[in-house]
């Protein structure tokens, strides 16, 4: 039982880390970045580069964040910005971009599965059993990311500007906020966070050119039930991630794999606001 709870906590934390970047870009731009999965992949390969260069494994995190930020900002300017008025087309263009990214990675790194050196390994004795240290560390990482994001959004001027743009873009502009640069930063940050999450999940998920795709759908569904609220994303990750784990454990893993997508679609049908509180 304790292990199940621990599993739920770590699963929720990882889901949160994987989705929060998408939440930031969707919240500000109202556009779903379907290349989110590809940015997770970029993060995984950034960590791989750190391993191959023989650098300290801990460097993988800042390095992946930086790579994601830069690439994300470029994508916003050249691909997403022209599509502000065509949100469905933006989904398609970013999906196409995802294809491009995974093919480029395949050409550069080969299509095989790669292994990344992890900064922490092994297991720890916990609740009459052993538990993966890396899952615990990843959970800690997710908590730090979530905390920093909450601080950024609620304690800084940039976060205030971003929230103003989310709530009422016209009024934000009338108060002198350059919403176009807020969008650029938000998309870049979203991509950077996706890339960071990709580096974090590398020891848990194999590194291959399509490693991000399975995560994309769950992240996408979680963001839809969370709107633009970090709190709602946290609730969604715990509830839907927990449900997934319970169904995988006591039902079948295949049904478990469907849980988040199906439950989120049904939830939105009944309550279009999802987990967003009033």
């Amino acid at each position: 039982m304790q292990v199940l709870i621990l599993d739920i906590v770590t699963t929720a934390a990882i889901l949160f880390a994987v989705s929060c970047g998408l939440l930031i870009s969707f919240g500000v731009l109202k556009i779903i970045n379907f290349a989110h999965g590809a940015f997770l992949t970029i993060g995984g390969y950034s960590a791989l580069v750190v391993t191959q260069m023989g650098w300290d494994p801990l460097l993988a995190y800042p390095f992946s964040l930086l790579v994601g930020l830069v690439l994300g900002a470029a994508v916003e300017r050249f691909i997403v910005k022209p599509l502000y008025d065509r949100p469905l087309d933006a989904i398609l263009a970013t999906w196409g971009l995802g294809i491009v990214i995974s093919q480029v990675i395949t050409i550069v790194f080969g299509r095989g599965v790669q292994f990344v050196q992890s900064p922490v390994t092994g297991a720890v004795e916990l609740f009459d059993g052993s538990y993966s240290v890396y899952r615990l560390a990843a959970t800690g990482g997710a908590v730090i990311i979530g905390g920093l994001l909450a601080l950024l959004m609620h304690r800084t001027r940039l976060g205030l500007n971003a929230r103003a743009v989310i709530m009422n873009e016209n009024l934000a502009q009338a108060l002198g906020i350059n919403s176009s640069s807020v969008r650029l930063i938000a998309f870049g940050l979203g991509a950077g966070l996706a890339s960071l999450a990709g580096a974090i999940i590398t020891p848990l998920s194999s590194v291959d050119p399509n490693m991000g795709v399975p995560w994309l759908v769950n992240a996408f569904m979680l963001v839809l039930v969370a709107g633009s609220s970090l709190l709602a994303l946290l609730i969604g990750s715990v509830v839907l991630g927990g449900l997934q784990l319970v169904i995988s454990t006591y039902g079948s893993p295949i049904l478990g794999g469907l849980t988040i997508a199906v439950a989120a679609a049904l939830l939105l049908r009944i309550r279009p606001k999802g987990f967003v509180l009033d």
């Binding site: 691909i79 022209p82 599509l83 087309d89 398609l92 263009a93 196409g96 971009l97 995802g98 294809i99 491009v100 093919q103 480029v104 395949t106 050409i107 299509r111």
Partner: peptide, 17 residues
């Protein structure tokens, strides 16, 4: 195979844009 998919992906993005 990879170059072909890369080309399709790039053209697709370009066409949408």
């Amino acid at each position: 195979p990879f170059v072909w998919k890369l080309a399709i992906g790039s053209v697709f993005v370009g066409v949408i844009l």
